[in-house]
């Protein structure tokens, strides 16, 4: 029963969601949003589970003084700090347990939670994102090293697209006559992005969609069970 009940739920909800995609009449038209609401409610309860896991995992590492234990401590302290100031003075539009903290707002310019969010969390998040620029450079270097015919093609295409997207690329081929308009780097770049690139992306998307249909059907029919923990 422990195994069959989730399978029955998966079958019923899977079939209902598929049917409601094609039937605009109530109750089918409201079914997806209702199921999404249920998911949100369950996810809300599961958040507590996540926080418990966060504490357990970090406290264990701090206790055992594992390498870099102070990072785990910093993580927990940051979590606690945001939680406490959020609870005490609330966030932008919401009141906290002890009010809006007008005195602190006067000093910081905003609520403590929002101040920390804007001045600590946002710069840290932006720092992580900006690392992408450096990683793209190192990855592109490896991808463009000429080793085979394919990597040659990749490099030539990349150079055309990169140059075509800059004003310098346009300037390089500006001297070409009107009859050779297609060979202007910006036009060539647009052509590559619009046709070969779109075609390849759509091929991946179509095959992924077929994969999703197959995967969903296996789950709905109970053929695929390993996501429940066991396939038996």
């Amino acid at each position: 029963m422990k195994r069959n009940l989730p399978l029955i739920f998966a079958f019923i909800s899977g079939i209902l969601v598929v049917i409601s995609e094609f039937i605009p009449h109530r109750p089918f038209s409201q079914m997806v949003s209702t199921l999404q609401d249920w998911f949100m409610i369950i996810a809300g309860f599961a958040i507590i589970l996540g926080q418990i896991s966060l504490f357990q995992a970090n406290l264990a590492k701090i206790k055992e003084k594992k390498s870099g234990w102070y990072f785990y401590l910093a993580g927990l302290l940051s979590f606690m700090l945001m939680l406490v100031i959020g609870l005490l003075w609330g966030t932008q539009e919401y009141r906290g347990l002890i009010g809006h903290g007008e005195a602190i707002q006067g000093w910081l310019g905003s609520k403590p939670f929002d101040y920390m969010f804007d001045n600590a969390y946002m710069p840290l998040s932006a720092t992580m994102f900006s690392l992408l620029a450096f990683f793209i450079a190192s990855a592109a270097y490896r991808a463009f090293i000429i080793r085979s015919f394919e990597s040659n093609l990749l490099m030539i295409t990349a150079v055309i697209v990169i140059l075509g997207r800059t004003s310098f690329g346009g300037m390089l081929t500006a001297w070409l006559p009107e009859s050779f308009k297609f060979w202007h780097l910006p036009n060539l770049s647009d052509f590559i992005m619009e046709y070969p690139n779109s075609a390849a992306q759509r091929a991946i998307m179509i095959s992924a969609a077929l994969g999703i249909i197959g995967s969903s059907l296996r789950i709905i029919l109970g053929i695929e069970r390993s996501y429940l923990g066991s396939d038996k």
Partner: peptide, 24 residues
């Protein structure tokens, strides 16, 4: 893309799941 969804069937070697890949 699709290989991600086929992976479980491929790894399990379960004939029923492999049959579904033919459907893809």
């Amino acid at each position: 893309g699709e290989e991600l969804f086929a992976a479980s069937a491929y790894l399990s070697r379960d004939p029923q799941q492999l049959g579904s890949l033919k459907g893809h």
